[in-house]
Design a protein around this nucleic acid. Structure first.
Length: 287
DNA sequence: AAACAAACCTGTGCGC
DNA sequence: TGCGCACAGGTTTGTT
């Protein structure tokens, strides 16, 4: 579910509601959500400490702790972070709960809250680790590609990344080792706005078209972050306060198979399935 | 190098 | 109303 804009929205929520507040207790319901390091490491690593900074790379959330350790959260398909008062009913599939002490300096932090990691499909995870062990515990972090909003991301960078590769452009956009943070929704939106068909080989695109693609990546992701991400019909994705995003109202391709193309108005959006993943695009606008 | 399938899980929506 | 099946935002691993 959550891609870069949704994860960034969660990161901002943690920044405003969690950073600086002591974690007084930790409970882990489902071991699977902490499978990487185990229940004890998560409980001992978090109890009594404080999140000092909330960071993100691609779809990985990384909270820096006062103890020197770090907490990595990946939401995968169905994970959510919710920050609510203890008397607010815990949703089903609440697997990890951190109790946050009040912070009298700010009204919305002045009472106890629970930081809840909720995840029906349990693909997501919470990892607490010493940064010295990062390479061993989270080897995939070291293999992440450039983050379009965190790293330097200009036409030259994107050209060098894409042009050498004889691979369908959508597959490259989705490849977290190349560019980190884009998933199925935003890949379709980015390609639609760039006017590029999903199966074009990256090596066949001109510098001008790669430049247009880079602009599309930047503008779509920034606009989506500004809108608080995309919440689809099932309302799976919400921010830490339970609010939906709004970028789905600006979708022009994703989920619009059979509906008119809002850009050209001359045809309908085509939906194809490859590798069990759906792709929506316009046969006229995208070539 | 790249394409593809399967695996990890649960919930939802659809057709019958 | 109930049942079975297809399908869903991600990522890794293994096979062609």
């Amino acid at each position: 579910m959550p891609e870069l804009p949704e994860v960034e929205t969660v990161r901002r929520g943690i920044e405003s509601l969690v950073v600086g507040r002591r974690i007084s207790s930790v409970t882990v319901g489902r071991e699977r959500s902490v499978r990487r390091v185990g229940r004890e490491a998560v409980i001992h690593g978090l109890t009594g400490t404080t999140v000092t900074t909330a960071g993100r790379r691609g779809k990985y959330l990384i909270c820096y702790l006062e103890s020197g350790d770090r907490m990595m959260i990946h939401l995968r398909m169905s994970g959510r972070v919710l920050i609510h008062p203890p008397d607010h009913p815990r949703p089903p599939h609440t697997h990890v709960v951190l109790t946050l002490e009040p912070d009298s300096r700010e009204a919305r932090r002045s009472v106890t809250h629970e930081f809840r990691f909720v995840d029906p499909r349990t693909f997501g995870e919470v990892v607490v680790y010493d940064p010295i062990d990062e390479r061993d515990v989270l080897p995939e972090l070291g293999r992440l590609g450039v983050d379009p909003l965190v790293d330097h991301f200009d036409d030259d960078v994107v050209w060098r990344l894409l042009h050498p590769r004889r691979r369908a452009i959508k597959a490259l956009l989705l490849d977290q080792h190349v560019i980190a943070g884009i998933g199925n929704i935003y890949a379709d939106e980015i390609l639609h706005r760039a006017g590029i068909k999903w199966d074009r080989l990256a090596s066949s695109l001109s510098r001008e078209r790669v430049s247009r693609l880079r602009q599309s990546v930047t503008s779509v992701l920034n606009e989506a972050v500004a809108a608080g991400g995309s919440t689809l019909q099932d309302t799976q994705y919400v921010d830490v306060e339970g609010e939906t995003g709004w970028f789905q109202l600006d979708h022009r391709a994703y989920g619009r198979g059979g509906l008119p193309c809002l850009t050209c108005g001359k045809t309908t959006i085509t939906r194809v399935v490859t590798n069990g993943r759906s792709t929506c695009f316009c046969r006229i606008c995208q070539r």
